[in-house]
């Protein structure tokens, strides 16, 4: 930091100095934003426009180049909206995201609660618990196949415990398949919720909890009435991020099921993938993509409203705390 001190100070008179400072800040702000704007204008915008073009132009890939595609107005959107497969894939995606989010959260929260106070062996458990997040999804999928196939170790353990040979069809029963990937998602991403919640617990102010304890409140009441309300914003964050990431899950489902058995695991990403890259209905895929984007934006806007409210509450609280301090 000594180098900063060595920089000579400016000696301009007061008023022009303020002006030049304002100008300097403006220039600095633009310099920060310029690459971001370039990225948006150069990559994202053309891609979204291209997608929009395909949503309104039927491109039959066998008949000509994409710039010759025929304008069909809202026909493609109509086709997508009346396609029951699309509806089902949305329902599956929502179910998958909801189920895995809740699973990740409950386990992550429970682990964080059990671990937020120091105890012997804490570091070891912590290390172990974050490893699943460091495992590549494709690896998770293939390892799961080794574990769950009919003659795999999980079925062996079940058979040993039950005493009779019993092979659960984790991977081939359509009633089970989506749950199987959901469990994998929970295994894979519980560390994320766990870490967030652990940070939340360790940041809880000590004073209100001590005060409640002195007043004779039970651990249970302290948890419900003091700790949980204070953790609300963190909980919202953990749930929202996880849910939105789970909506986009592709590698595990694709590597294990490719949408099957039957169509039990055909979620939105899988269906769009099939439509665009297997059927080459680029236009239909584009229209679906736009609808999915709309859906995601609605969900995200809702989440943002909640998050902002929580964030403001927290900011106000910190501000109040720092005033009293």
């Amino acid at each position: 930091m000594s180098s900063v001190v060595a920089v000579p100070g400016s000696v301009a008179p007061a008023a022009p100095r303020e002006v030049s400072r304002a100008r300097g800040i403006r220039r600095f702000k633009w310099a920060i934003l310029a690459p971001l704007i370039a990225l948006f204008a150069g990559v994202l915008l053309p891609v979204l426009l291209l997608q929009l073009y395909f949503s309104f132009h039927q491109w039959s890939v066998y008949l000509g180049s994409w710039w010759d595609a025929e304008w069909v107005g809202l026909d493609i959107f109509k086709e997508v909206l009346t396609d029951p497969r699309f509806g089902w894939s949305i329902i599956r995606s929502l179910a998958f995201a909801l189920g895995s989010t809740i699973g990740c959260f409950l386990i992550g929260f429970g682990l964080a609660y059990l671990m937020h106070k120091p105890f012997r062996g804490q570091a070891l458990y912590y290390i172990l618990f974050i490893i699943p997040m460091l495992t590549v999804p494709i690896v998770v999928a293939y390892t799961a196949e080794m574990l769950l196939y009919d003659a795999g170790p999980i079925n062996d353990i079940i058979s040993r415990i039950g005493g009779v040979e019993h092979k659960v069809p984790f991977l081939t029963n359509p009633d089970f398949a989506l749950t199987s990937v959901m469990l994998l998602e929970v295994w894979n991403w519980t560390p994320f919720s766990f870490i967030i919640m652990l940070a939340g617990f360790s940041s809880l102010p000590k004073e209100p909890i001590e005060a409640a304890r002195i007043l004779g409140a039970s651990t249970w009441r302290i948890f419900w009435e003091v700790q949980l309300p204070l953790l609300r914003p963190v909980i919202f964050l953990a749930l929202t991020l996880r849910f939105l990431e789970a909506m986009a899950e592709f590698p595990k489902i694709w590597a294990l099921f490719q949408g099957g058995p039957g169509s039990a695991t055909e979620t939105i990403p899988v269906y769009i993938f099939l439509t665009t890259w297997q059927y080459f209905e680029v236009s239909k895929g584009a229209a679906m993509s736009y609808l999915v984007m709309m859906l995601m934006i609605v969900i995200v806007l809702l989440a943002i409203r909640l998050l902002r409210r929580e964030k403001h509450a927290i900011d106000a609280m910190t501000a109040a705390a720092s005033r009293t301090a």
Binding site: P174, G259, G262, S263
Partner: peptide, 19 residues
């Protein structure tokens, strides 16, 4: 591929009892 996958999907659904 499109013909084939539509047929494959429906056959698979019937085979596992979804359809």
């Amino acid at each position: 591929l499109e013909f084939q996958d539509q047929l494959g999907k429906h056959l698979s659904e019937a085979y596992v009892g979804q359809r």
